[in-house]
Amino acid sequence: MLDKISKSTELKPWRGNIPIYHRYTLGVAGERFFKALRDHKQILASACPNCRQRFIPPKIYCEACFEETRDWSTVEGPGYIKTFTVLHRSLEEEPLERPVVVALIAWSGVRGGLLHRLGEVDPSGVKTGLEVEPQWAEVRTGSMDDIQFFRPPLNS
């Protein structure tokens, strides 16, 4: 029972698909968040009326207090890199032409953060704690690509 198959040519595969696709809703919080990105180049956080915790991405409820959030506000100042990775392979496991830097970007005093690419940085110079700002896209449609990437602040 523990024999291994060692020749892939001996296998006869049958290819198939599951014939379905999905249309997802942005949701109450998501619609507000992406409209702010698109129309005002703003990153919105929501806050719990009970524990005052702010959240990015914003949500309509606080998981801890289980209360509905209110008090939406824009995050102030640059974010910082909480952690990052340098990618060398695609989703299909193909080698990438150039390494891509992806980071979890957080804002102090706000729980959570956004996952995004970094741009205008040398991968070897990226450090945890580095301050970053969004590079806004010219044409914005209400998606994460409304931010092209995050980069160190231009005035620093």
């Binding site: 997802y24 942005l26 998501g30 992406f34 991405p57 952690t83 990052f84 990775t85 990618l87 392979r89 695609s90 989703l91 299909e92 496991e93 992806v102 980071a103 979890l104 956004l114 996952l115 995004h116 690419r117 998606s143 994460m144 690509d145």
Partner: peptide, 29 residues
């Protein structure tokens, strides 16, 4: 072509999936 494609669909459709996120990234982070 790779099971990571299925993992992509466990992430948020708007915040994370457009970046082509997969498990290797998240665990690298």
């Amino acid at each position: 072509p790779h099971p990571q494609g299925a993992f992509n669909a466990i992430y948020d459709q708007f915040l994370e999936r457009p970046l082509g996120v997969n498990l290797l990234w998240i665990f690298a982070l």
